[in-house]
Design a protein around this nucleic acid. Structure first.
Lengths: 283, 283
DNA sequence: TTGTACGCGTTATCAT
DNA sequence: ATGATAACGCGTACAA
């Protein structure tokens, strides 16, 4: 059995309540008592029991991070960002990844665990009543963090300068960019949209057997040539190998931002509902 | 305030203890009472408070998943695997990613949260006294899950058949494979080891301006030609683009295995200390 | 088969 | 400035 507050109190010759106050930094405790209590705490290696604390305070200190996307290559970065903030606030991130849960599962468990808030990467169900930050989608029900697609669309249009565009990304990136490119007047017909999930063979750069020119083949249902603008989503090595550009999602920053927003909501501070992050493009 | 066990008991006209027993499926409860209690539970939407339960049972239901690696592209898959098992066992995965914690941080928090076990992807400190499964490294202090490097090394040797090998992976994969290749008699001098973390420019496939032959340039400190065997770690698209092979780590399976081992340890079952998973190679 | 009563480790509300 | 005591919600030995 580990050291409890009662053990510390007895050893220090004070009441449990006093130990609790010392721990919270209550200013009404005499310096002498405070010092004594801290000494005992350290000597005994006492760690407050988070469960008991949660039960008493009606706060678990737990935050859910839900990943709905099947494949998010930048998950580590996002989690690093989230973790930095949460760790500083003494909150614990509980991570759920798509495919072994549904919305009801999350709802049920989050209630059982008295979760304080949820960061939901994807499209959260609209009837959750815990503090929620949605990441990736634009929604008017929750505070959200989303890439600034229209901004990058304009930049792409400028770079393409009339050339055919070949874009390889996930389902969401493709559809968002498609919409925004149309919005700023780029002909969708002139663009080839490829879902990297549907690329079992990948893109290969081959040399033509007859005229010795480069030929890029895309999974046998599309074809493009060296003159086209090839853009890949979030995969810099692959992009460089193919001589294309990389649209880069600032995942770590998004994690930091999402966690900050949530923490502020938990403190009952006002937070902006719309939060757009800038995408960058790199060749 | 949410519905508690006392609410259910009062509504059903029984004692809290009876509700508790119904919840655990205690066979000594009369079918009639059982039915009545379940009806009320559902009607009121009662969810047991996991904190109170944990406090009473001295079990939090929390498991830490620690990722020490700075960049693990297969993290989603691993977590999916872990999650499948843990969810079925009513355990919650708390995820920590390197760079905002150290071993003491983990130790301290895990004590506070009465964590039941830890899955540590990397090299866990040797003095943790919670049930632990180490993933990736071979260690004799803990139960571990690790890739079967020597196996794949033999396969690579056979495929290379004397050719020069160029291997692009992370620090650990490189060093493990290097050792195993040496073990089975392949000349290390003849292999080029590249860390993908140190590949800001990536690998590009260029055509030589004079003789029109392919030339692959690696980050300006190494060079290889089409005759070499190019192998990439865990990056199938990139590998296909470069015409190389991909050494594939079965991340999801490793997650499942690690979680299974941990769960069995928590049930005080005997588990094997060494657990090797097979790597595959794909062109 | 079911109820009573206490313990789990904190925090919060009164007292003193 | 500090102590005593009552919650917090659940599990469980002990009674009945």
């Amino acid at each position: 059995m580990s050291v409890t507050m009662a053990d510390v109190a007895k050893e220090a010759g004070v009441d449990k309540a006093t130990v609790s106050r010392v721990l919270k930094g209550d200013p009404r405790i005499s310096p002498k008592t405070r010092e004594k209590v801290w000494e005992v705490i350290k000597r005994l290696g006492y760690k407050p029991n988070a469960l008991a604390r949660g039960l008493s305070a009606r706060k678990s200190g737990l935050v859910y991070i839900v990943f709905e996307e099947q494949d998010l290559p930048q998950m580590n970065r996002f989690l690093r960002g989230v973790g930095r903030i949460l760790a500083a606030m003494d909150k614990e991130p509980i991570v759920y990844v798509a495919d072994y849960f549904d919305a009801d599962f999350i709802r049920s468990r989050s209630m059982a665990h008295k979760v304080e808030g949820i960061i939901w990467v994807g499209s959260p169900p609209s009837d959750m009543d815990v503090p929620m930050v949605a990441v990736g989608d634009v929604t008017n029900r929750y505070v959200y963090v989303s890439p600034f697609w229209s901004d990058i669309a304009k930049e792409i249009k400028k770079i393409a300068n009339g050339r055919k565009i070949v874009f390889v990304g996930d389902t969401k990136a493709n559809s968002m960019l498609k919409r925004e490119l149309a919005e700023c007047g780029t002909d969708g017909e002139n663009t080839l949209w490829i879902c990297d999930g549907s690329l079992p063979g990948g893109i290969k750069r081959l040399i033509h057997p007859v005229d010795q020119k480069f030929l890029d083949i895309v999974n046998s249902d599309g074809e493009f040539t060296m003159g086209d603008l090839l853009l890949l989503f979030n995969d810099i090595n692959y992009a460089k190998a193919l001589g294309g550009g990389c649209i880069y999602l600032p995942s770590l920053e998004m994690g930091v931002l999402a966690a900050r927003l949530l923490v502020n909501m938990l403190k009952n501070r006002e937070v902006p509902q719309k939060n757009l992050v800038r995408l960058t493009i790199e060749f």
